[in-house]
Design a protein around this nucleic acid. Structure first.
Length: 189
DNA sequence: GAGCCGATATTCT
DNA sequence: GAATATCGGCTCC
């Protein structure tokens, strides 16, 4: 997995779809199958790393498999997985997933039973990820946030969401069709 | 369903 | 002062 991530994000975005992202926070475990990501690179005008290193984006320059968590619109937390060798700031924004473990925990954290993991801010909230976890190694099995390889999924690309620059790049990767979940998920469209 | 708007940390002009 | 890798509540269909 580390080797896979030691490449620019646009080359590996599709390969992350289907992977299992899990967190264990306050002794509560939650997990999702990743179904939507976006790639950002160091020479990408839409990337937080485009103008160099700052206090906020420092972990984006870390080793592949580093978690980069930032505050979005002053309110939400969003999470990325750093790719490319250490020192090169490329990352995959984790935008959505299918819950597989801890739906009850997610619903409590979200304060509602639907729309648990269908957006980057919602995904981070359901998994209990905050800025306190910025910089952790998600390929370490003892980390509170972990990424493990799963079954590959069929996918397609589209332009990225919510940006105003480099809008032509097809760097959003979305799993197509139904993603199998161990349990029916009626509240999750 | 679509469209408007307010919340507000961090960065940029 | 303005913009932003967002979300939820509201209105009006």
């Amino acid at each position: 997995m580390r080797g896979l991530l030691t490449r620019p994000a646009p080359e590996v975005g599709h390969a992350i779809l289907g992977s299992v992202l899990s967190t264990t926070i306050d002794r509560e475990t939650t997990a999702v199958i990743i179904t939507e990501v976006e790639a950002y690179t160091s020479d990408d005008p839409a990337s937080h790393s485009f103008r160099g290193r700052t206090d906020r984006n420092a972990s984006m320059f870390g080793a592949p498999g580093t978690l980069y968590v930032y505050r979005s619109y002053g309110i939400h937390w969003c999470m990325n997985v750093t790719t490319s060798p250490e020192g090169e700031a490329s990352a995959l924004l984790l935008r959505a997933g299918t819950p597989v473990v801890g739906r009850d925990v997610m619903m409590r954290r979200r304060g509602r039973g639907d729309h648990l993991t269908d957006g980057p801010g919602k995904l981070a909230q359901s998994l209990g990820v905050t800025g306190a976890l910025d910089g952790v190694d998600i390929l370490d099995e003892h980390s509170p946030v972990r990424l493990e390889r799963g079954a590959p999924l069929p996918w397609e690309t589209t332009p990225r969401i919510g940006i105003s620059r480099a809008v032509d790049k097809p760097w959003r990767f979305v799993a197509t069709g139904e993603v199998s979940s161990p349990r029916p998920a009626p509240e999750q469209r």
